[in-house]
Simulated assay, not measured.
Amino acid sequence: MTTTEDPTKAAAVDPGPLIRLTIADCAAKVLHSAVTLGVFGALADGPADAARTAGRTGLHHRMAVDFLDALVGLGLLERTDGRYRNSVLAQTYLVPDAPSYLGGFVELTNETLYDTWGRLTEALRSGEPQRLDPDKGGFVGDRHKDPDRMKRFLAGLDAYSDRMGAELARRVDWARHASFTDLGGARGNLAAVLVRAHPHLRATCFDLERTRPLFTEHVGRLGLGDRIDFAGGDFFTDAVPRADVVVLGHILHGFDTDRRRTLLRRVFDAVRPGGAVLVYDRMIDDDRSDPERLLSSLHMRLVSPEGSEYRVADCRAWLREAGFTDDGAQTLLGTHTLVTAHK
């Protein structure tokens, strides 16, 4: 049986949140295009009108004003008497070559999210991860065949690890420790931030052997080759390098629960007595109500055969099972959770 609902009742429910959710990707694509076109770099030295900004960035005159005004509406530009300038947010994070530049991370998300999330319905039906074919332009992280895209991928990771490293440098009592191992440390950027903030520390990045040339180039350019070492190997078959502290950032979310437990037992063996383990991810809140954390978990399921985010309480329980003593959890950067434990 069908029923006809009174249209006046439906009119009393504002559809605005539904409409905004439906077109949310439009705002993100405006940001991605602005970074790609160099809008924020073009306005870094001061305001300019639409015509001059278009000339500096290659914007077509038919699109320029609406595009720039959309950036104003999104809080990324400011407009006064027809002249545009970067907002404080954009000037801080979106001007190329600035120490706090996050444009690489913006480009990384643009290249990695849209093609895979365009296959979400297929994945929901099949349960299969949606890996993209690199021979057809798909993005596959640190195994990409295009060196230029590889560099952009790493720049995006560095943009994020700069902020995370600064936060860890401030939140953790590093005076108690002399060394740390960064699991999945890639080309050593997080380690570099930490050893610069705490000059007494020595670091080891433990990652797949194919990462070594990238590490050697990057750490050498930073002038930190005498303080950060590289160890090539597999987390599950090679010994984790011993240290006072082992850091697992964006590592556990790539595996299923059994492998997480196995890895944490291996980490326990690597941490020296009196040392600590630091685990950070976009962990799911314990009552599973934060939509951003749940979307992150869905993303991991979408792009990997085993991965997902996990509850904070689960992480703390796995650490206790591995032999660690729980030190608690805290929010990092408003988007991540850091769980710490000691041996």
Rank of each mutant, 00 (worst) to 15 (best):
L102S: 12
L77M: 04
T80G: 02
T80M: 11
E107D: 15
G73Y: 02
N86D: 06
E107Y: 00
T116P: 00
R85L: 05
Y93D: 06
N110K: 15
N110Y: 14
S100Q: 07
D115W: 15
R85M: 03
L94Y: 09
N86L: 02
D81A: 14
Y101E: 08
E111I: 07
V95M: 02
N86I: 01
L94N: 08
E107G: 05
D97Y: 13
V88G: 05
A98I: 03
F105D: 12
L102D: 07
V106F: 07
F105C: 10
T109D: 09
S87G: 11
F105H: 14
Y114C: 02
L77G: 03
A90N: 04
Y114P: 02
T80S: 07
D97L: 04
Y114E: 14
V95A: 00
R85D: 06
L74I: 06
T92H: 13
A90T: 08
N86P: 00
G75C: 07
T109V: 07
G73N: 13
L108P: 07
L113V: 12
T80C: 06
R85A: 12
G103L: 14
V72Y: 15
S87T: 03
P99M: 14
D115G: 08
A98P: 09
R85F: 01
Q91A: 15
N110T: 07
D81E: 12
V88N: 04
S100C: 08
T109A: 06
G104N: 08
G103M: 13
T92W: 01
E78V: 11
Y101K: 11
A90M: 10
T80H: 15
E107V: 11
V106E: 01
F105G: 04
L77S: 02
R83H: 15
T92S: 09
P99F: 11
R83N: 13
T109Q: 13
R83T: 11
L94Q: 02
S87Q: 03
Y93K: 12
G103R: 12
E78P: 00
G75T: 01
A90R: 12
T80N: 10
L108R: 08
E111D: 14
T112V: 05
A90W: 07
E111Q: 14
E78L: 06
S87D: 08
T92I: 01
S87I: 00
P96D: 06
Y114S: 10
N110W: 13
R79G: 12
V95S: 00
Y114Q: 10
P96W: 03
R79D: 08
N86S: 04
G104D: 10
G73F: 01
P96S: 09
F105T: 03
L77C: 06
Y101Q: 10
D97K: 09
T112A: 09
E78W: 03
Y93A: 04
Y93C: 10
V106K: 00
G73S: 06
T80A: 11
L108Q: 13
Y84P: 02
T112R: 15
L74W: 11
L76I: 04
Q91E: 15
G82W: 13
L94S: 08
V72A: 08
E78F: 02
L113Q: 08
V95P: 08
Y101I: 11
L74A: 13
Y84L: 05
Q91R: 12
G73V: 00
Y84M: 08
D81M: 03
A90C: 05
R83W: 15
V95R: 02
L74P: 07
L113D: 09
L108K: 10
G75K: 06
V106C: 01
T92A: 14
D115P: 04
D115Q: 12
